[in-house]
Write a protein that binds this DNA or RNA. Sequence first.
DNA 1: CCTCTATCTAGACATCTGTCAAGATAGAGG
DNA 2: CCTCTATCTTGACAGATGTCTAGATAGAGG
Lengths: 120, 120
Amino acid sequence: MSKQLPVVDQSLCCAPVTRAPLTEQQSVELARVFKAIADPVRLRLLSLIASHAGGEACVYDLTGAFELTGPTISHHLKVLREAGVIDGERRGTWVYYRVLPDTLRTLSAVLVTPEVVAVG
Amino acid sequence: MSKQLPVVDQSLCCAPVTRAPLTEQQSVELARVFKAIADPVRLRLLSLIASHAGGEACVYDLTGAFELTGPTISHHLKVLREAGVIDGERRGTWVYYRVLPDTLRTLSAVLVTPEVVAVG
DNA sequence: CCTCTATCTAGACATCTGTCAAGATAGAGG
DNA sequence: CCTCTATCTTGACAGATGTCTAGATAGAGG
């Protein structure tokens, strides 16, 4: 299930977009991950997985929370997985997903905004 | 230039996606804003504006930083503006853009992830 | 080996998105 | 009023995206 290594440049952890211009490469990399979470279904999937008991949830539970077909949920989980936002593990019949906290933390840090954006 | 009121539910400031499932409405609202920043050009625009002297930048400066036409940059600025991420103000011939820090702060807070995602 | 359930893949299709060229609008300064 | 520059709007088009149906794969349990 772990088809991807960490995707986000962790050095961004202390370099919010408000402090210095992103390089073109950084912006492409970040956009890839933000695109993954920039969807209502995927944001809800993320919150369902992260807040589920044990920090993980199986596809069956997740599918039940939407009025969408299995393949569609599967597609969204794949997008999140390939972006390094979640990871899945098969245990028996079920596949369990959990969030990869480092990725979310990096995204959060990138958007941190100081009280006063700039003072000349 | 201020065609939109604040778009993001500020009550999300203390409710990261890792703590509780998002409602469908919250996820739609958040996805709208994340979609706005989930593009390499717009992320760079955002960082250029936010880190520019005085916290603002005019379109002319921004356009020069890309190999894209004026209308394309204008389009991206409009997307960011309508999502409540930036705001623009005309002063004479030029239009100056600045970030709306509350929006970025909300997005950042939503993605905050505790050290241990859950302990059973 | 067969079947049942859970999950994923493949392919199709409508919609959304990023980009550009052409033209419109808005001040500045004659 | 005219022109020049900065910015935005419109319309067109290729490519990406979300969803579905149909079919494939993987364990569990006879």
